[in-house]
Amino acid sequence: MNQITVYTTSTCPYCDMMKNFLKEQGLSFNEVNVQLDQAAANRLVKTTGQLGMPQTEINGQWVLGFDPEKVMSLVK
């Protein structure tokens, strides 16, 4: 079972592309909207050092931005 979390904002088109891609692949994921959760936003910046969205954690590995090839290389 893959552990996938997508960190998003409300106004990010690439976030929607990432979520749609995961759905098309039949991959379930949790979404954390960092615009609505400041604590999660702070943790994310501490963890990855990145502000851009989306950021997707897959089984402990990070994908920055919309990168379907990297996503598929990390899922089981």
Rank of each mutant, 00 (worst) to 15 (best):
N2V: 11
N2Q: 09
Q3T: 10
I4R: 07
I4D: 02
T5M: 01
T5L: 00
T5H: 00
T5E: 00
V6D: 00
V6Q: 00
Y7V: 03
Y7R: 04
T8L: 09
T8D: 07
T8C: 03
T8R: 10
T9P: 05
C12T: 00
P13V: 11
P13F: 12
Y14M: 14
Y14V: 11
Y14T: 10
C15E: 09
C15A: 15
C15F: 14
D16K: 10
D16L: 08
M17Y: 11
M18H: 08
K19A: 13
F21Y: 14
L22V: 13
K23Q: 12
E24Q: 15
E24H: 10
E24S: 15
Q25Y: 10
Q25H: 09
G26V: 15
G26N: 14
G26E: 15
L27G: 05
L27Y: 09
S28I: 11
F29M: 13
N30H: 08
N30W: 04
N30R: 13
N30Y: 12
E31H: 14
E31I: 14
E31K: 12
V32P: 00
V32D: 00
V32K: 00
N33H: 06
N33C: 05
V34N: 02
Q35V: 03
Q35P: 01
Q35N: 04
D37C: 07
D37P: 09
A39V: 05
A41D: 03
A41L: 12
N42M: 03
R43W: 08
R43N: 12
R43K: 10
R43L: 09
V45S: 03
K46S: 13
K46R: 12
K46Q: 15
T47I: 06
T47W: 01
T47L: 11
T47H: 06
T48I: 04
L51Y: 11
L51M: 06
M53S: 09
M53D: 06
M53K: 14
P54A: 15
Q55C: 07
Q55W: 01
T56W: 00
T56A: 01
E57I: 11
I58L: 09
I58G: 02
I58H: 02
I58K: 07
N59D: 15
G60S: 12
Q61T: 09
W62F: 08
W62R: 01
W62K: 01
V63Y: 00
V63E: 02
V63L: 06
L64Y: 10
L64G: 07
G65C: 10
G65L: 11
F66W: 13
F66T: 10
F66R: 12
F66E: 08
D67C: 02
P68S: 04
P68I: 04
E69F: 02
K70S: 08
K70I: 08
K70R: 15
V71C: 14
M72G: 02
S73Q: 15
S73A: 13
L74H: 03
L74S: 05
V75Q: 04
K76M: 13
K76R: 07
K76Q: 06
K76C: 03
